[in-house]
Design a protein around this nucleic acid. Structure first.
Lengths: 204, 204
DNA sequence: TAGATTGTTAATCGATTAACAATC
DNA sequence: TAGATTGTTAATCGATTAACAATC
């Protein structure tokens, strides 16, 4: 069955809400109130992956939580490589929430001679040139990149050639990856421009 | 006419590509090759806002660039308030790209006594308690928030009550705002979980 | 004039919502 | 049994893509 890609971030949100839910049982309507999605939407999203509820009753909170973890693939830890230790990269390296959620930044890379060899947050900063050898040997599949636009495609190519299968990119660039590799972009400018579009439109 | 909201980030991408385009004229097909959107999609997106091209010729690069700036509301500067000067907030404050694109972080707020009164990047850090007076007096309409989840809703409420109309939120929380206020969320966990979903699915 | 490419209408596709029989 | 709520099918809605007349 084809699962709409928009369903995945919604499932993440259902999971977030379940984390702070006290009741042992929850209905799609309650989840709807808490997440802002519709109740039918929630039942549909869950139905893509199985039958987790009991008609007339609802969903067992704890059981559903575990199911959603499995669906999202967060029922385990993930090692992550971080490339680009500038302002944003450093902030990501220091971000506690990462480790809490099972993401372990295991390797950090930069091309700045002044940074290479130093440690931040207990992680040694390595030369970008060593990406192929280090990543291949590690078997890591996830990477986060926070490098300037100008080097983003080169870094992505290196990562993909080294076996990385999923990339979160903060560089404001249109990047190409081969099939079978997932690339997600978080582009600050684009988000800001959604806001200015909104503001501008409501003036005119 | 109803404009699909997904069209706006695409227009941002068209604009990005135009910035580094040398040719004086560009066709929807060329733009498609450069952005990864379809040519028909591009013509449709542009058509929502007017007739910018010449049949048989294409679009004038410079003229189109100016039109897209107007559409996105980036043909002017915007003052921005930043709330939460932790790791991420500091990185955002230091981010040069912001000012380059016409976003001026004019005020910074935090609730940490050790930070309040100090300056970062030439911006004085103020007490969160002063949001109402400072924002009301300034007339600022945009805010970026990088506070912990636990205080995010309170901060949003304060900002909205002070006249803020557009918010970019980095806190991993489901936040409520009144009608007429635009709230965008950048949730790192959700993005990471899109990646783990992908990785997990391709194993099973 | 012939070739190219827009702007727009119509067709397709996919996702969301509504409705309800099945079931606890 | 009566009431509640799921899982699923059908209906609706909206967005993308294809096709093509108009026009440079």
């Amino acid at each position: 069955m084809k699962i709409p890609s928009s369903s995945i971030p919604r499932i993440s949100r259902y999971y977030r809400v379940l984390l702070s839910l006290k009741d042992p049982v929850v209905s799609s309507q309650e989840l709807a109130d808490l997440t802002g999605s519709g109740a039918a939407q929630i039942r549909k999203d869950l139905a893509y992956f199985g039958q987790f509820g009991r008609p007339g009753k609802g969903y067992g909170t704890e059981a559903l939580k575990q199911e959603l973890k499995k669906i999202l693939g967060i029922d385990r830890n993930w090692a992550v490589a971080l490339v680009g230790i500038g302002n944003l990269g450093s902030a990501l390296l220091a971000y506690k929430g990462f480790k809490d959620q099972g993401f372990n930044i295991k390797y950090a890379f930069d091309n700045d001679r002044k940074k290479i060899g130093r440690s931040r947050q207990g992680i040694k900063i390595r030369d970008i040139k060593n990406i192929p050898s280090v990543i291949k040997a590690s078997g890591i599949e996830m990477a986060v990149i926070a490098v300037p636009q100008s080097s983003a495609q080169d870094v992505v190519d290196m990562l993909v050639a080294s076996g990385i299968k999923a990339i979160l990119n903060f560089a404001p660039a249109v990047l190409k990856v081969s099939d079978g590799v997932e690339l997600l972009n978080i582009d600050l400018s684009i988000e800001m421009e959604k806001l200015t579009y909104f503001l501008q439109r409501n003036k005119a």
